[in-house]
């Protein structure tokens, strides 16, 4: 039932990640995160530390990273808290990957606004390229996950790939993004619609139109 499941605790996993420890750069960030809270409240930094740990795993595996059980245990020891409490946090938030992901973690939003604006077509593109929900492609490049609203409804449909958002997608634009990624280039993040900058109204402003070019005093018109 649950889409997410912990990677099984095997001797191989322990062998691979058993000696995980923060690299100096991440350790510095971790210390800074802990320092945000009063002494003795270091547990509050658990979410930040899990993120850093995941990113460090990501650097090692050249992916977005994930959280193997020994790494979760490392964070628990680091924060002096029961490991079950850390595991609760890690399993609660979908931002933490509980199983290895591919080079690019394609998170397609399927919530209502994106669905109405054509997320089904985006999924179709993924399917065409051999991606299956919750799976990594055999070449290790793509992992597809369907996610709930990412708060980018004004530029729906949207996809988050690793740390970048790609918005205002059509099947063609999405294909272009994926092609660039697989070619090793970095596509432009944000909206993919020509002429649009961020989330301003599509097709030009519909209100305060007189303000576009220069400042305009509307007060006389009230």
């Amino acid at each position: 039932m649950a889409d997410r499941a912990l990677a099984p605790d095997t001797p191989e996993l322990r062998a691979a990640w058993g000696d995980f420890a923060f690299a100096p750069a991440w350790e510095e960030k971790a210390k800074a995160a802990i320092a945000r809270y009063p002494a003795g409240r270091q547990k509050s930094a658990v979410m930040a530390l899990l993120d850093y740990a995941q990113r460090q795993v990501g650097e090692a595996t050249n992916t977005q990273g994930w959280l193997p059980i020994p790494v979760i245990e490392y964070v628990a020891t680091y924060l002096d808290m029961p490991v079950i409490r850390v595991l609760e946090v890690a399993t609660f938030y979908t931002m933490y990957n509980l199983a290895p992901v591919g080079r690019f973690h394609v998170q397609v939003c399927g919530t209502t606004p994106c669905m109405l604006r054509g997320s089904d077509d985006i999924f179709a593109v993924c399917a065409k390229r051999g991606m299956k929900r919750g799976h990594t492609t055999d070449d290790g490049m793509w992992t597809l996950t369907e996610v709930e609203c990412m708060g980018s409804c004004a530029t729906a449909p949207m996809v988050q790939i690793n740390d970048g958002n790609y918005e205002d997608l059509t099947p063609e634009r999405f294909e272009a993004v994926l092609d660039k990624l697989s070619a090793g280039e970095l596509p432009k993040e944000g909206t993919q619609e020509p002429g649009r900058h961020t989330s301003e109204p599509s097709g030009g402003p519909t209100t305060l139109t007189a303000m576009v070019g220069e400042n305009h005093d509307y007060r006389g018109e009230w």
């Binding site: 039932m1 649950a2 029961p82 079950i84 409490r85 595991l87 609760e88 399993t91 609660f92």
Partner: peptide, 19 residues
């Protein structure tokens, strides 16, 4: 003894001991 917890969320929530 912190050993029982609630993993996952929403409908998928599961009560379990650590591993």
């Amino acid at each position: 003894v912190d050993e029982i917890g609630a993993l996952y969320r929403g409908e998928s929530m599961q009560i379990t001991t650590y591993l």
